[in-house]
């Protein structure tokens, strides 16, 4: 194992994971808002924001799929050491990490069962820019409308059409996250 994989985790796991979770909670509860999230320093190409999400939410019970460039030795070692999560293919994953292009087609991911819609995947999408412009969002957690720079609209509209099934997304960019749950109605800008 690469010794660098041992670095970059939380230094105070209980407190830092609590603070990171609150960022994730606010993001998921208020789609389209940007939340700062800190504490992790994972190896490239993973962003610190995505690293903090993985450290907070993943453990040995949550299979993780690393997609595209994120499926590299450095990140495999890092996720294995810090989260203990099994690394699996897209269909079996509870969490998936990659840029938006990497995990395509996204209809491979678990969307939950009609009687257990919670058994759906969470996608952590790495982006180079995250802003409150672009696609218009409506739905639970949004007072009137919100806007978020989504990589596309069609895939998220198709995902919302499956409601209450569907996957949920976090978008990570450097030290910030935003979220798009399956409940959000997306209108192309």
């Amino acid at each position: 194992m690469n010794p660098a994989a041992l670095e970059g985790g939380f230094t105070n796991a209980a407190v830092q994971s609590a603070q990171a979770f609150r960022a994730a909670l606010e993001a998921m509860a208020r789609p389209g808002t940007l939340q700062p999230i800190t504490g992790a320093a994972p190896p490239a190409p993973m962003s610190p924001a995505a690293g903090a999400l993985l450290l907070t939410l993943c453990d040995s019970t949550t299979p993780v799929h690393l997609a595209g460039a994120h499926d590299c030795a450095a990140l495999r070692d890092w996720v294995t050491f810090h989260c203990g999560a099994p690394l699996v293919g897209a269909r079996d994953a509870s969490f998936a990490l990659g840029t938006w292009e990497a995990p395509q087609p996204v209809d491979r991911f678990a969307i939950g069962l009609p009687d257990y819609p919670d058994r759906a995947a969470t996608l952590i999408v790495e982006t180079t820019a995250l802003g409150q412009t672009g696609a218009r969002l409506r739905g639970p957690g949004i007072q009137t409308t919100a806007a978020l720079s989504l990589p596309e609209s069609a895939a998220f509209q198709a995902n919302h059409a499956l409601f209450p099934l569907g996957f949920d997304c976090f978008f990570a960019c450097e030290g910030q996250i935003a979220a798009l749950p399956r409940s959000t109605i997306v209108e192309a800008a």
Binding site: F21, L25, M28, T56, L57, C58, T61, D118, S183
Partner: peptide
């Protein structure tokens, strides 16, 4: 921490549905 992680995942799925 593992218990809190499990509860946190449930809360996030609860917010999504």
């Amino acid at each position: 921490e593992q218990t809190k992680g499990m509860i946190r995942r449930a809360i996030l799925k609860g917010l999504a549905v």
